[in-house]
Simulated assay, not measured.
Amino acid sequence: MKREPVINSLQIINNHKLEILQKGRSGPLIVILTGMGCSFEEWYEVTEELRKTTQVLMYHRPGLGDSELGAEVRNTFATVQDLYELLHFLKVKEPIYLVGHSYGGLCAQHFVKVHPEMVAGMVLVDSTSVNVRELDELDLPVLNEESDEKWVLKCLEYASKEKEQLTSIIQPSLLEKHKQFPVDIQERLISFQCNPSLYKAMASEIQNWKKDAEIIKKLNELTNTPLVVIGRDKEHSILSDSEADIPEWELRTFEEKWEELIIQQGNLSENSDVIFAEGAGHSIFLNRPDVVVDSVLKITGK
């Protein structure tokens, strides 16, 4: 599948426009599924390195970026359908290597269980677990104040605003890492945050993700699909969040459970490695892009 080095395009997939980013001319095809509410532009450093020896395909789920949000429910199966149709549209014949971060990792797990013949290997980057409900069972008074219900209400409030109003409310900003990216990418990252449809899509994903996890859990196992599971640095995450007026014991309890769920993901395949990215928080692709790149190249043999 020969392509120009970098192509950003809009294509009609499943009757709605999807914003697609393609990098690289040759080599195995890497498909990256981003986290909830996250732009593929944040993966700039990772994809610039991967494009040297592989092809990279990313897209914004409906409602994100320039991708059109339809009336359908946004859940992991909708993402499975979109990705399947996108690969068909691009005439991809060879099995892909799937990379999923956070909620995108939950989508990746759903896709590989429905279409195992289409996936040559997978990297889960601090992925949401199919056992995510176990986090809700922790007795954490401060952390549990931020419930899914409150998150959905906030997203729906933002979704009801015009773009100019939303920009004024959220005051979009960039992380220090983002400021190292090219100026045009920084501008797109700012604009990405001010799109009302982003928050409407997120509300739908949040309303469905725990039901999705239960569905995915009951699907077929991966058997021997090559798998690398990357988890964040527990101590780094506790230290980073310690300034947010959350008791350290709550942070530690949460992070220990999250680490346990990450380790469990290694059981998804008989051919897996579980590693933790030292010095990285949840956005491992920003904090330790080298760990993500090395893991992808490991499963592709490049």
Results as ranks from 00 to 15, higher is better:
residue 57 L to T: 02
residue 119 V to Q: 03
residue 14 N to T: 07
residue 10 L to W: 09
residue 298 K to F: 12
residue 228 V to L: 04
residue 20 I to T: 05
residue 266 G to K: 02
residue 273 D to N: 10
residue 22 Q to N: 12
residue 114 V to C: 09
residue 215 I to H: 08
residue 241 D to A: 14
residue 171 Q to I: 09
residue 40 F to K: 10
residue 64 L to E: 10
residue 141 P to W: 06
residue 240 S to K: 07
residue 118 M to L: 09
residue 140 L to I: 08
residue 190 I to T: 09
residue 82 D to A: 03
residue 52 K to G: 01
residue 31 V to R: 03
residue 75 N to T: 06
residue 49 E to M: 05
residue 7 I to A: 14
residue 179 K to P: 03
residue 176 E to Y: 03
residue 57 L to H: 01
residue 245 D to R: 04
residue 23 K to L: 14
residue 47 T to Q: 14
residue 285 F to L: 09
residue 111 F to L: 04
residue 232 R to A: 11
residue 163 K to A: 12
residue 177 K to G: 04
residue 227 L to I: 07
residue 80 V to S: 09
residue 300 T to G: 08
residue 88 H to C: 11
residue 216 I to H: 09
residue 177 K to Y: 10
residue 63 G to E: 00
residue 273 D to T: 10
residue 61 R to T: 04
residue 225 T to M: 12
residue 96 I to F: 01
residue 92 V to A: 11
residue 6 V to C: 12
residue 260 E to P: 00
residue 36 M to L: 15
residue 6 V to H: 15
residue 170 I to G: 12
residue 217 K to G: 07
residue 210 K to S: 05
residue 78 A to S: 14
residue 145 E to M: 00
residue 267 N to A: 05
residue 195 N to K: 15
residue 128 T to N: 06
residue 152 V to K: 05
residue 46 V to N: 04
residue 264 Q to F: 00
residue 132 V to Y: 11
residue 184 D to A: 10
residue 284 I to N: 04
residue 293 V to Q: 03
residue 27 G to K: 10
residue 298 K to V: 06
residue 254 F to I: 00
residue 36 M to W: 11
residue 194 C to M: 09
residue 170 I to L: 12
residue 257 K to P: 08
residue 164 E to M: 06
